[in-house]
């Protein structure tokens, strides 16, 4: 998981760095307030992904979806966790229902109108 996160992060950063030096390893590490060597180790999978706050900062600097980066790091953002923890059984059932659906079906979440007792 951490390797996937590192690979993805490195690919995105290097693609941007090819056009803009602001995305060099040093510059990006400075922008999110971590050491360049630490960021390098994360990108190579030597270090585990950083905390949620740093991942969100990286997403902001690289203009990436923070939920995607968090998912690659094997994490769920705290706001999503709060939503799920409020009704865990319901959301667990919902997510399992969606597991095998194709993307277009998930994107178009429709709900049947429930018929009751009358």
């Amino acid at each position: 998981m951490s390797q996937a996160f590192g690979d993805y992060l490195r690919a995105v950063r290097e693609r941007k760095a090819a056009d803009d030096p602001a995305f060099s390893l040093r510059q990006v590490a400075g922008a999110v307030d971590i050491e360049p060597s630490y960021l390098s180790k994360i990108e190579r999978g030597i270090e585990a992904p950083p905390g949620e706050g740093t991942i969100k900062d990286l997403a902001k600097v690289l203009a990436e979806d923070p939920d995607v980066l968090l998912a690659l790091a094997g994490r769920v953002s705290s706001d999503l966790q709060a939503i799920i923890c409020k009704r865990p059984a319901l959301f667990a059932e919902l997510l399992r229902t969606f597991r095998s659906l194709p993307n277009h079906a998930v994107a178009r979440v429709v709900r049947e109108v429930r018929d009751g007792d009358w």
Binding site: V113, R114, D115, G116, D117, W118
Partner: peptide
């Protein structure tokens, strides 16, 4: 909506 009458909850629908 949680504030609907109980009978509506039983009937379902919209």
């Amino acid at each position: 909506f949680s504030g609907v009458p109980e009978a509506w909850k039983g009937h379902g629908g919209v």
